[in-house]
Design a protein around this nucleic acid. Structure first.
Length: 198
DNA sequence: CGCTCAACCCTCATTACCTCA
DNA sequence: GGTGAGGTAATGAGGGTTGAG
Protein backbone atom coordinates (compact mmCIF):
# COMPACT_ATOMS: atom_id res chain seq x y z
CA UNK A 1 0.00 0.00 0.00
CA UNK A 2 1.16 3.51 -0.73
CA UNK A 3 0.27 4.65 2.76
CA UNK A 4 2.06 1.68 4.22
CA UNK A 5 5.17 2.53 2.25
CA UNK A 6 4.92 6.15 3.25
CA UNK A 7 4.59 5.18 6.87
CA UNK A 8 7.36 2.65 6.42
CA UNK A 9 5.17 -0.05 7.91
CA UNK A 10 5.57 -3.73 7.24
CA UNK A 11 3.35 -5.02 4.49
CA UNK A 12 2.67 -8.37 6.16
CA UNK A 13 2.45 -9.30 9.79
CA UNK A 14 5.12 -11.58 11.17
CA UNK A 15 4.56 -15.28 11.76
CA UNK A 16 4.52 -14.71 15.52
CA UNK A 17 1.92 -11.97 15.17
CA UNK A 18 -0.25 -14.19 12.96
CA UNK A 19 0.13 -17.13 15.35
CA UNK A 20 -1.12 -15.09 18.28
CA UNK A 21 -3.94 -13.53 16.28
CA UNK A 22 -5.02 -16.96 15.01
CA UNK A 23 -4.95 -18.51 18.47
CA UNK A 24 -7.20 -15.76 19.79
CA UNK A 25 -9.48 -15.95 16.79
CA UNK A 26 -9.99 -19.65 17.50
CA UNK A 27 -11.58 -18.87 20.84
CA UNK A 28 -13.33 -15.61 19.95
CA UNK A 29 -14.04 -14.27 16.48
CA UNK A 30 -14.86 -10.81 17.81
CA UNK A 31 -12.76 -8.69 20.10
CA UNK A 32 -13.93 -6.54 22.96
CA UNK A 33 -12.44 -3.02 22.78
CA UNK A 34 -10.32 -3.59 25.89
CA UNK A 35 -8.94 -6.86 24.61
CA UNK A 36 -8.24 -5.25 21.25
CA UNK A 37 -6.12 -2.55 22.88
CA UNK A 38 -4.29 -5.10 24.98
CA UNK A 39 -3.62 -7.33 21.98
CA UNK A 40 -2.46 -4.37 19.88
CA UNK A 41 0.04 -3.45 22.59
CA UNK A 42 1.21 -7.03 22.80
CA UNK A 43 1.72 -7.28 19.05
CA UNK A 44 3.15 -3.81 18.54
CA UNK A 45 0.34 -2.93 16.13
CA UNK A 46 -2.28 -0.22 15.97
CA UNK A 47 -5.65 -1.22 17.48
CA UNK A 48 -7.15 -0.37 14.10
CA UNK A 49 -4.85 -2.95 12.46
CA UNK A 50 -5.98 -5.61 14.92
CA UNK A 51 -9.62 -4.77 14.27
CA UNK A 52 -9.08 -4.94 10.51
CA UNK A 53 -7.24 -8.24 10.82
CA UNK A 54 -10.24 -9.71 12.68
CA UNK A 55 -12.64 -8.30 10.11
CA UNK A 56 -10.67 -9.82 7.24
CA UNK A 57 -10.26 -13.07 9.13
CA UNK A 58 -14.02 -13.32 9.66
CA UNK A 59 -14.55 -12.71 5.95
CA UNK A 60 -12.05 -15.46 5.07
CA UNK A 61 -13.68 -17.84 7.54
CA UNK A 62 -17.10 -17.11 6.10
CA UNK A 63 -16.09 -17.74 2.52
CA UNK A 64 -14.39 -20.99 3.56
CA UNK A 65 -17.54 -21.99 5.40
CA UNK A 66 -19.66 -21.29 2.33
CA UNK A 67 -17.31 -23.46 0.30
CA UNK A 68 -17.64 -26.30 2.82
CA UNK A 69 -21.42 -25.97 2.95
CA UNK A 70 -21.54 -26.10 -0.81
CA UNK A 71 -19.48 -29.30 -0.90
CA UNK A 72 -21.72 -30.94 1.70
CA UNK A 73 -24.89 -29.95 -0.11
CA UNK A 74 -23.44 -31.09 -3.43
CA UNK A 75 -22.57 -34.51 -1.98
CA UNK A 76 -26.07 -34.86 -0.51
CA UNK A 77 -27.61 -33.88 -3.81
CA UNK A 78 -25.47 -36.32 -5.80
CA UNK A 79 -26.39 -39.14 -3.45
CA UNK A 80 -30.10 -38.34 -3.70
CA UNK A 81 -29.89 -38.03 -7.47
CA UNK A 82 -28.24 -41.40 -7.77
CA UNK A 83 -30.85 -42.96 -5.47
CA UNK A 84 -33.57 -41.37 -7.51
CA UNK A 85 -32.09 -42.83 -10.70
CA UNK A 86 -31.89 -46.34 -9.29
CA UNK A 87 -35.48 -46.12 -8.00
CA UNK A 88 -36.55 -44.89 -11.39
CA UNK A 89 -34.88 -47.84 -13.06
CA UNK A 90 -36.45 -50.21 -10.55
CA UNK A 91 -39.82 -48.67 -11.27
CA UNK A 92 -39.32 -49.07 -15.02
CA UNK A 93 -38.42 -52.69 -14.61
CA UNK A 94 -41.43 -53.36 -12.32
CA UNK A 95 -43.66 -51.60 -14.80
CA UNK A 96 -42.44 -53.84 -17.55
CA UNK A 97 -43.13 -56.87 -15.39
CA UNK A 98 -46.60 -55.59 -14.59
CA UNK A 99 -47.33 -54.96 -18.23
CA UNK A 100 -46.20 -58.45 -19.10
CA UNK A 101 -48.26 -59.96 -16.29
CA UNK A 102 -51.30 -57.97 -17.28
CA UNK A 103 -51.14 -59.21 -20.82
CA UNK A 104 -50.70 -62.79 -19.69
CA UNK A 105 -53.60 -62.46 -17.25
CA UNK A 106 -55.91 -61.11 -19.91
CA UNK A 107 -54.96 -63.88 -22.28
CA UNK A 108 -55.40 -66.54 -19.62
CA UNK A 109 -58.66 -65.40 -17.97
CA UNK A 110 -61.12 -66.39 -20.77
CA UNK A 111 -60.02 -69.99 -20.48
CA UNK A 112 -60.68 -70.00 -16.71
CA UNK A 113 -64.15 -68.40 -16.56
CA UNK A 114 -65.32 -69.13 -20.06
CA UNK A 115 -65.62 -65.49 -21.10
CA UNK A 116 -64.13 -64.30 -24.37
CA UNK A 117 -60.83 -62.51 -23.83
CA UNK A 118 -61.88 -59.50 -25.90
CA UNK A 119 -64.87 -58.86 -23.63
CA UNK A 120 -62.75 -59.01 -20.53
CA UNK A 121 -60.33 -56.48 -21.95
CA UNK A 122 -63.27 -54.24 -22.67
CA UNK A 123 -64.48 -54.56 -19.07
CA UNK A 124 -61.15 -53.47 -17.69
CA UNK A 125 -60.97 -50.54 -20.07
CA UNK A 126 -64.42 -49.32 -19.13
CA UNK A 127 -63.86 -49.67 -15.38
CA UNK A 128 -60.38 -48.43 -14.64
CA UNK A 129 -59.08 -49.51 -11.26
CA UNK A 130 -57.01 -46.73 -9.76
CA UNK A 131 -56.29 -48.53 -6.52
CA UNK A 132 -52.89 -50.20 -6.63
CA UNK A 133 -53.85 -52.66 -3.90
CA UNK A 134 -56.89 -53.88 -5.77
CA UNK A 135 -54.86 -54.30 -8.86
CA UNK A 136 -52.20 -56.14 -6.97
CA UNK A 137 -54.70 -58.43 -5.34
CA UNK A 138 -56.50 -58.99 -8.59
CA UNK A 139 -53.26 -60.00 -10.18
CA UNK A 140 -52.36 -62.29 -7.32
CA UNK A 141 -55.72 -64.05 -7.48
CA UNK A 142 -54.42 -65.83 -10.51
CA UNK A 143 -52.41 -68.35 -8.57
CA UNK A 144 -52.07 -70.62 -11.52
CA UNK A 145 -49.98 -68.01 -13.23
CA UNK A 146 -48.12 -67.06 -10.07
CA UNK A 147 -47.10 -70.66 -9.49
CA UNK A 148 -45.78 -71.06 -12.98
CA UNK A 149 -42.34 -70.03 -11.87
CA UNK A 150 -42.39 -66.81 -13.87
CA UNK A 151 -39.78 -64.43 -12.46
CA UNK A 152 -42.00 -61.39 -12.51
CA UNK A 153 -44.90 -63.24 -10.97
CA UNK A 154 -42.94 -64.58 -8.05
CA UNK A 155 -41.52 -61.16 -7.33
CA UNK A 156 -45.02 -59.68 -7.28
CA UNK A 157 -46.21 -62.44 -5.00
CA UNK A 158 -43.23 -61.93 -2.73
CA UNK A 159 -44.03 -58.25 -2.41
CA UNK A 160 -47.69 -58.89 -1.73
CA UNK A 161 -47.01 -61.53 0.91
CA UNK A 162 -44.59 -59.30 2.70
CA UNK A 163 -47.31 -56.74 3.26
CA UNK A 164 -49.74 -56.96 6.12
CA UNK A 165 -53.08 -55.17 5.83
CA UNK A 166 -51.85 -51.92 7.34
CA UNK A 167 -48.91 -51.86 4.98
CA UNK A 168 -51.17 -52.20 2.00
CA UNK A 169 -52.30 -48.61 2.37
CA UNK A 170 -51.04 -46.56 -0.53
CA UNK A 171 -49.29 -44.01 1.71
CA UNK A 172 -46.86 -46.62 2.90
CA UNK A 173 -45.67 -47.60 -0.51
CA UNK A 174 -42.17 -46.18 -0.62
CA UNK A 175 -43.45 -43.62 1.86
CA UNK A 176 -45.10 -41.96 -1.06
CA UNK A 177 -48.54 -40.40 -1.17
CA UNK A 178 -50.40 -41.49 -4.27
CA UNK A 179 -53.57 -39.55 -3.57
CA UNK A 180 -53.85 -36.55 -5.79
CA UNK A 181 -51.19 -37.76 -8.16
CA UNK A 182 -53.42 -40.26 -9.86
CA UNK A 183 -56.25 -38.91 -11.84
CA UNK A 184 -58.90 -41.63 -12.03
CA UNK A 185 -60.33 -40.11 -15.18
CA UNK A 186 -57.07 -40.59 -16.96
CA UNK A 187 -56.57 -44.17 -15.83
CA UNK A 188 -57.68 -46.28 -18.76
CA UNK A 189 -55.99 -49.50 -17.70
CA UNK A 190 -55.08 -51.27 -14.49
CA UNK A 191 -51.42 -50.33 -14.74
CA UNK A 192 -51.99 -46.78 -15.78
CA UNK A 193 -51.85 -45.42 -12.23
CA UNK A 194 -48.23 -46.42 -12.01
CA UNK A 195 -47.25 -44.32 -14.98
CA UNK A 196 -47.76 -41.12 -13.08
CA UNK A 197 -45.48 -42.33 -10.32
CA UNK A 198 -41.80 -41.23 -10.36
C1' DC B 1 -40.45 10.23 26.03
C1' DG B 2 -38.91 10.92 21.41
C1' DC B 3 -35.56 13.11 18.49
C1' DT B 4 -31.01 14.10 16.66
C1' DC B 5 -26.20 13.60 16.24
C1' DA B 6 -21.65 11.84 16.82
C1' DA B 7 -18.83 7.94 17.66
C1' DC B 8 -18.06 3.40 16.98
C1' DC B 9 -18.41 -1.03 14.94
C1' DC B 10 -19.84 -4.17 11.45
C1' DT B 11 -20.24 -6.24 6.58
C1' DC B 12 -19.20 -6.09 1.92
C1' DA B 13 -16.82 -4.83 -2.18
C1' DT B 14 -12.75 -3.20 -3.74
C1' DT B 15 -7.92 -1.63 -4.04
C1' DA B 16 -2.96 -1.98 -3.68
C1' DC B 17 0.67 -4.62 -3.00
C1' DC B 18 3.30 -8.95 -2.45
C1' DT B 19 4.55 -13.70 -3.49
C1' DC B 20 4.97 -17.58 -6.19
C1' DA B 21 4.49 -20.78 -9.99
C1' DG C 1 12.72 -11.05 -16.36
C1' DG C 2 7.70 -10.77 -17.29
C1' DT C 3 3.18 -12.22 -16.06
C1' DG C 4 -1.11 -13.82 -14.10
C1' DA C 5 -3.34 -15.80 -10.05
C1' DG C 6 -4.07 -15.88 -5.37
C1' DG C 7 -3.41 -14.08 -0.66
C1' DT C 8 -3.72 -10.28 2.45
C1' DA C 9 -3.64 -5.55 4.72
C1' DA C 10 -6.15 -1.65 4.17
C1' DT C 11 -9.89 1.55 2.43
C1' DG C 12 -14.52 3.32 1.63
C1' DA C 13 -19.50 3.02 1.44
C1' DG C 14 -23.45 2.04 3.78
C1' DG C 15 -25.95 0.59 7.73
C1' DG C 16 -26.89 -0.62 12.80
C1' DT C 17 -26.27 0.46 17.74
C1' DT C 18 -25.48 3.32 21.67
C1' DG C 19 -25.12 7.17 24.64
C1' DA C 20 -25.25 12.18 25.38
C1' DG C 21 -27.76 16.38 24.90
Amino acid sequence: MKKSKINNQQRRFSDDQIRLLESIFESETRLEPRKKLQLARELGLQPRQVAIWFQNRRARWKSKQIELDYKTLRADYDELASRFESLKQEKESLLLQLEKLNHQLLDQKPEEDGNPGRDHKATIKSEPDTNPNNFLEEALDHRGFMDSGEEGGSKLQEIAESLDDSEKSTEKWYGFEFNGLIDPLCSSSSSHWLNSWV
